[in-house]
Amino acid sequence: MKITVRIWRQKNADSKGKLVPYELDNVSEHMSFLEMIDVLNERLTLEGEDPVSIDSDCREGICGMCGVVINGEPHGPENTTTCQLHMRTFNDGDVIDVEPWKAAAFPVIKDLVVDRGAFDRIIQSGGYISAPTGSAPEANNLPVPKHDADHAFEAATCIGCGACVAACPNGSAMLFTAAKITHLGLLPQGQAERDSRVLGMVEQMDAEGFGGCTNIGECTAACPKGIPLDVISRLNRDLMGAIARS
């Protein structure tokens, strides 16, 4: 296949970026999207140009390190991560636009690489269960109804990639935050800190400069792990309850 990629090039956080077109002749449909970029980078390197900076690690759709906006959609047209997107999704002659996540809370580091440290700080503000090592009771002392466990698991599959923020017209981190609130809030172990967790995490989310959620729902559509939208309602219920009690 022959394709043209227009890639966002930006030297560093302070400079202005722009889309730069590159033509690729021998793209195999079996390549992953990132392998296509690898091939381009090999060529740029040999031509003495700066290769495109792009994050990835596991390339299995689980670490959440990769993620770019492809043709205006976070992680591209398929419901998967950027690393699991394959070129067979595209057609010969296509022009593909590639841009980084854009959100005030995710400053660009270089080209397609952004800083998602804000997510870690949201977790620091309550996204955990305080269980010092060694203090745990026997695991089966605490049965968890399978339904709750499955539901908690579903929310826990969030990989922290940030596509939800990139998709949200408000740049809100609500889906990410709500997924964690749901995961921990559904388990009996998570009850003791339920109020302080939601208060702390929401406050941090605001402090990081994420937008407010107005329930648009783009986040769920972009999420490669299909984190369901009702987690947001659950967060709101917890939040109202916590405010009422505090």
Binding site: N215, T220, A221, P228, L229, D230, S233, R234, N236
Partner: peptide, 8 residues
């Protein structure tokens, strides 16, 4: 807090 569905 009234929504209980996975998508809109």
């Amino acid at each position: 807090g009234a929504n209980r569905s996975s998508t809109r």
